[in-house]
Simulated assay, not measured.
Amino acid sequence: MFTGIIESLGTVKEVRQDQDNLHLTISSTITPELKIDQSVAHNGVCLTVVAIDSDSYTVTAIRETIEKTNLGDWKIGDSVNLERAMKLGDRLDGHIVQGHVDQIGFCVSVENANGSWYYTFEYDENLNNLTIEKGSITVNGVSLTVVNSKQNQFSVAIIPYTYEHTNFKNFEVGTKINLEFDVIGKYVSRLHGLRK
């Protein structure tokens, strides 16, 4: 369980294909605090630490994860949003984030708003996910509030702190991102027959 509040940025040091699996080695300042078998969210994808070496650690993604996320596009030098799992009793500063990406989306607009930024994202509406105005959404692991919710599109407003401390500063039109829709909204839509 995560909150969507990014702790640190990591850098991809190695990407290694092993049959259908992808082994990703990440360099990060949080590495000394990690343990093998711990869960860490990487751009919102919950992955298990399988090896630690100095300031780097390795996680493994299986085909199911690779097909539903942007992990397959990662390359050496890419910046990754990182969050360790929430401790029981901690404040929930973002919203309930599972680290289970629902689908990918694409950045379709970046607008500088005189000190902040508006990003607009588009996603495949045929997967029956939805957003609501002022509802929660997780973009690359970042807990955000939806503005301008549409059928298959939504925007988020990014403050300077989030811009500087996440990989949002690298987004441009066409950037592929991971989306986790609000878990409460998913249950409500399922109960009302909107999701299959």
Rank of each mutant, 00 (worst) to 15 (best):
F106Q: 13
T120V: 13
Y123W: 15
A85S: 15
I159F: 07
F106W: 07
Q151A: 15
T162D: 01
T166I: 10
K150A: 15
Q98K: 09
I158R: 01
D124A: 14
I137P: 02
S149V: 09
R91V: 14
D90V: 08
Y161R: 12
W117S: 10
K87D: 14
G135M: 09
S79C: 08
N148R: 15
E172P: 00
H95Y: 08
A85M: 10
Y163N: 11
E125L: 09
T120H: 06
R84H: 00
L179Y: 07
N129E: 13
V108N: 09
E133N: 13
G105N: 10
H95T: 08
I158P: 02
T131K: 09
L179F: 09
D182F: 10
E111V: 11
T120E: 15
K169P: 07
V147K: 04
I132S: 12
H165T: 06
G135I: 09
V173L: 04
I96M: 15
T120D: 09
E83Q: 08
G89S: 10
L88V: 13
V80L: 13
W74I: 12
I137N: 08
L92W: 01
E172K: 14
N178W: 04
V173D: 05
Q153C: 10
L71S: 04
G77K: 01
T120G: 11
G141Y: 05
L82D: 05
E111I: 08
F154G: 08
F181Q: 03
G105L: 06
G89K: 02
N148L: 09
V108G: 04
N81A: 02
L130V: 01
W74H: 03
Y163E: 11
G174I: 04
L71W: 06
D93Y: 11
N126S: 15
N152F: 02
K176A: 05
V146Y: 03
V80D: 01
G77Y: 03
S79G: 02
A157S: 15
E172D: 09
N70F: 00
Q151T: 14
N152L: 06
V139S: 04
N81H: 06
Y123Q: 10
I76Y: 00
Q103P: 01
S149F: 08
L71G: 03
F181I: 01
K75L: 00
H100C: 05
T162K: 07
D93V: 04
Y163S: 07
A85Q: 10
G94F: 04
K75A: 11
H165S: 05
I158V: 15
E83S: 06
V101S: 04
K150H: 08
V146R: 05
N148G: 14
G89Q: 08
Q151I: 10
S79D: 01
L82W: 03
D73S: 14
N126C: 06
K169S: 13
P160M: 14
N114Y: 12
W117N: 06
C107H: 02
V142K: 03
G141N: 07
L179I: 10
D182G: 12
D93Q: 14
Y163H: 12
C107M: 15
Q103W: 00
N152C: 05
N81K: 00
V108A: 04
